[in-house]
């Protein structure tokens, strides 16, 4: 295990980026912070700037207007960064894939490390996704 991987074992700081979502996944992410799930006990917390983050959570389809912004956020991120696609929309485009403003699934735009499908995925599923990813590292 290298130094970088070791840093990822504990206290992940998460940055949440909604690229064109319906709010469902976003609310469920916020739900993780509240008393029922309380991920802060693992040292995970939402941060206000991508420059402080270890993990980038992306929700929603990437629309044509957000596409340059998503790229910019990714470029500003300190590397290594873990990108997790939350929900069916960033994974495949889901129900909105046929829309005229759809710029492609997230993995066509930036490299993605994990996918958590579901509409919306349950908070438990999101946690399970992160745990699986960390075990693999």
């Amino acid at each position: 295990m290298g130094f970088k991987e070791k840093c990822f074992k504990k206290s992940l700081w998460v940055f949440h980026l909604s690229a064109g979502s319906c709010n469902n996944c976003d609310i469920e992410i916020l739900d993780l912070l509240t008393p029922k799930y309380d991920v802060e006990r693992f040292g995970m917390k939402l941060v206000g700037s991508i420059r402080h983050a270890d993990v980038l959570l992306v929700t929603g389809i990437v629309t044509k207007k957000t596409l340059p912004r998503v790229l910019e956020v990714y470029n500003q991120a300190p590397k290594p960064i873990v990108v997790i696609a939350i929900g069916a929309c960033p994974c495949t485009g889901g129900i909105f894939a046929s829309g005229y403003n759809f710029a492609g699934p997230l993995d066509k735009v930036i490299p993605v490390d994990a996918y958590v499908p579901g509409c919306p995925p349950k908070p438990e599923a999101m946690l399970a996704g992160v745990v699986k990813l960390l075990n693999k590292k």
């Binding site: 044509k64 207007k65 596409l67 403003n101």
Partner: peptide, 8 residues
């Protein structure tokens, strides 16, 4: 322009 992207 209101809703559509700059690149539209």
């Amino acid at each position: 322009r209101f809703l559509l992207a700059e690149s539209w």
